[in-house]
Design a protein around this nucleic acid. Structure first.
Lengths: 126, 126
DNA sequence: CTGTATCCCCTATGATACTG
DNA sequence: CAGTATCATAGGGGATACAG
């Protein structure tokens, strides 16, 4: 099903080649992936994909986030240039943030397509 | 175990369609994304994308992972059905695991393409 | 070599209270 | 409403020792 151009594999090969004995220790992707896919970031990005939201609206969209973490995550996203907060406090995605929606969408689609398999695997292993 | 309701898929559909009454609190994607993109999982998946590796080889590939976390992460990946560990201890991706390489690849490509912007944003914000 | 079992620190996160 | 400040805590994760 996927005879695709081995993108991920290539990248890994590159990291390995450039990084030498460091293996994947210095792979620059790590920081990116781990910063963006922390507990709340991707969720907020998805929420803001739809439209700009204010602080309170985001809280309602993600009811189980604490005020503290909402603030903190939004600051992180701002710092990474993915989200902007204008004077009217309507958080919205930047151009960079919107560009992330495609990869995120790919992940979401994957999760949708394989939800059953994932659940099956877990229930078996448990 | 047993036939869990197809509600997983439906929740996704709901979440995607409307944004939901309960917001994104019950979005099943969250579990998937957060389970797979924890500190080490995606890294190991990328490593195993190339070829099967044994425990020691993986340690060398990811030098800054502790033995404890390597074991634990591999067990998690097994439990999710993404990685298999045959008798010869050569960990390898399952079909499901391989199917994840595409979305991960999309993310990696994004990170590569936007590394400069990300760094700029951070340095400015700092 | 491939793990498991302990101990323990420390960070991420929640809860709560306060501020502009 | 949109935060900030402070305190408390569970759990992530490293270090180490041990086991098959």
């Amino acid at each position: 099903m996927d005879a695709r151009p081995a993108s991920a594999r290539q990248k890994i090969a590159i990291y390995r080649a450039e990084g030498g004995q460091d293996g994947l220790a210095n792979c620059p992707i790590r920081a990116v992936v781990q910063n963006i896919f922390d507990k709340w970031s991707s969720l907020l990005l998805m929420a803001l994909a739809e439209q700009p939201y204010r602080f309170g609206a985001l809280r309602r969209l993600v009811p189980d986030i604490s005020q503290r973490m909402l603030t903190q995550t939004l600051r992180d996203l701002e710092r990474h240039g993915l989200v902007a907060r204008p004077a009217d406090h309507r958080y919205h995605l930047t151009e960079l943030g919107r560009s992330l929606l495609d990869p995120i969408g790919a992940l979401v689609r994957w999760a949708e397509e394989h939800t059953d398999e994932l659940l099956d695997a877990q229930s078996v292993a448990r």
